[in-house]
Nucleic acid binder design. Structure first.
Lengths: 368, 368
DNA sequence: CAGAGGAGAGAAAACGTTTACCGCCCTACT
DNA sequence: AGTAGGGCGGTAAACGTTTTCTCTCCTCTG
């Protein structure tokens, strides 16, 4: 599947060239260098590694040979003899989303800083492909496999993760879940999440403090833990401020612009009253904004709006969107840090929750 | 640097466990499986590869052993014996940018579809780090090293690329440049670019056709080939439509929101006349939009605006931004396709230019 | 019934490194 | 003067696969 032939053996001649003599074709090996420099392979290896005394004159001869032959060490051989650290694998739904891209950047940065390579793969939401990818990363001897992004977190999900965790553990890799709820104790995995509930609480509380009583909630899909946590946070705030919970203001859908647009338009059409909107994600907020504007309503003059995520464009909207910042890059960095510290033998937590923070811009106005 | 010890040898006990007997600790090898199944390693290998007849009963025994030992093949060993295709390396400034993320997605998709792994690394614009990364990828025996994103393309740049190309070639890797100008003939590299000049031509032509005569051009930084091409395209259109070239309308800067904002505000302040703005990139357009709005000007009612790139948020702005679509994902896909086809022995072009396309939305209005 | 041929399996040689073990030669003590 | 020890360098044994030879049975054909 994932390992194909390097190329068809093609002609018998080509095959022979591959097997027999080295006709300028194949990259040179340490043995070629040794021969050219008139030393043993051990000396070449030691010269290159620099962890063993080598006379200046020998070093020079070796280096000259290395240069003239364009020698590069073969990682696979090196890894086989045990001197290469495993890469960090990042498995996500799709790299293109603004928040996921930041997680990826965080992972890449932290991994690179520690001399690790980052492998990225996208699943497009296909569970089967996720299975394959985890298996593949096991073969790659990845130091850590970081799964990131929302999913429905039902029983099947938990069984799947436990399976991944054990399979990876047996191959010496660590499973890290990013932006996902904790796993049962005993599962060999690390979870890095952020405070969805607290963030949502702050968002709604901000609206209520500004005097709004009827807040249209554009929630995420049921079953998704992050969506449910945000929902909970919203309700917490309602309760804390003594605001009524109104079923007609509580909607669910997915985190797309379209869904935000449709739900807002529908609310407007059916005439449910509200003076503010809390969008479960910034993109949903974008849709809401469009629907509001289309209906001739101004933000924040007529209705206030709060988003969630603080994606890059949030600050560039008009009005600049008040939203909840999620430390996506930090999420990625923390994921690899925890996995790697553990690998090196440091104690590290199995479950950390990063805090979120309300960032106030121009899309909320005090209710009259 | 990039290859560190897998972990400090720590205690002598740990070291011994590593070297000597296999105390449930180290992942199991093909030999363990062979022993458990009571067959030779050759048989295990063949069973797993499935490219050689093995009796049903033997197969079953082997599979049982594989399962119970949680065996996974070691890629490094496999690669050493020549059965693993090299990964695709993507080296970019920063994964976080909306357009680069799409290139990355294209690369990942095409690579994944062909059973290749994708390595991503970011340079943060540091040339030294780019050097290191290219060297690293050479060691990794990457099938292709894709460099993407704008840079200043001076002589030093060309020398650097020629050096990379040769170094990679000697290690059996192919250098692919994405969104960069062609290299001199003879350099073993592949270049995939898109039509900056043509796109810019269309953008300005669209404005001129709508009756605008004074178009503020927010160009990119001089020295960047893409910026210069767009500049050329803009001038082509001016000439083609008999519109005057006015120096005070021709600005350069970088492709940031801030730069767009500042330059537009400056133009407004100094009172140079214009009825339309052509922003060299969508983010720059975002800045222009903000400055225009701040000055009480409406888009497109008072001034028209065209961007470049068609980043995801372009369609979500108010007004939805008319812009030039760049096929970023296609760029990524093409890069790996060309590199891989060549590897397999198919002929493939060394230089392809993808076309861009004007997408008309709501930010341009016919001039009175 | 002899011999050809095929199916199934094992032994061992690569693949390209790193490193544990040994040597050798010199220098510097006692 | 004898020898301990340090600086250099070579030999060869891993590391975990794949694959080429072999070899041994069977089965089928003439």
């Amino acid at each position: 599947m994932t390992d194909e032939e390097k190329g068809p053996p093609a002609t018998p001649g080509a095959k022979k060239a591959k097997r027999r003599g080295r006709p300028t074709d194949r990259p040179s090996t340490i043995r070629d260098v040794a021969a050219k420099a008139g030393v043993s392979v051990a000396t070449v290896s030691r010269t290159l590694a620099g962890n063993y005394p080598v006379s200046a004159e020998t070093r020079q001869r070796v280096m000259a040979a290395v240069d003239s032959l364009h020698y590069v060490v073969n990682v696979h051989a090196k890894a086989l003899s045990g001197r290469v650290a495993g890469p960090i694998a990042l498995v996500m739904h799709d790299i293109t989303g603004p928040s996921l891209a930041h997680v990826a950047a965080g992972v890449e940065e932290e991994a690179g800083g520690r001399g690790r390579l980052s492998l990225v793969c996208s699943t497009k939401g296909d569970t089967k492909r996720e299975d394959d990818l985890v298996q593949l990363m096991r073969e790659q001897h990845a130091a850590a496999v970081v799964l990131v992004g929302g999913t429905v977190t039902d029983d099947a999900y938990h069984r799947r993760m436990a399976g991944y965790a054990k399979a990876l553990d047996s191959a010496g890799s660590r499973l890290v879940l990013c932006g996902r709820p904790p796993l049962p104790a005993g599962v060999p995995a690390t979870v890095v999440d952020y405070d969805n509930r607290g963030g949502a609480f702050q968002a709604t509380a901000h609206l209520l403090t500004a005097g709004h009583r009827r807040v249209l909630f554009l929630g995420g899909a049921p079953g998704f833990s992050s969506a449910e946590e945000r929902h909970l946070g919203h309700q917490d705030a309602l309760r804390a401020h003594g605001a009524p919970y109104l079923e007609e203001l509580d909607t669910t859908g997915d985190y797309t612009r379209k869904s935000g647009y449709l739900r807002t338009r529908e609310a407007l059409r059916t005439g449910v009253e509200f003076t503010a909107v809390f969008a479960g994600s910034d993109v949903v907020g974008l849709g809401a904004l469009a629907a509001l504007r289309e209906a001739g309503l101004r933000v924040p003059h007529d209705v206030s709006l709060v988003g969630f995520d603080d994606v890059p464009f949030a600050a560039d909207l008009t009005p600049a969107l008040t939203t909840v910042r999620v430390p996506y890059e930090e999420l990625g960095r923390t994921a690899v840090r925890l996995a790697l510290d553990r690998e090196v033998g440091f104690a590290s937590d199995n479950h950390v929750v990063l805090s979120t923070q309300l960032v106030i811009r121009d899309s909320v106005r005090t209710a009259d």
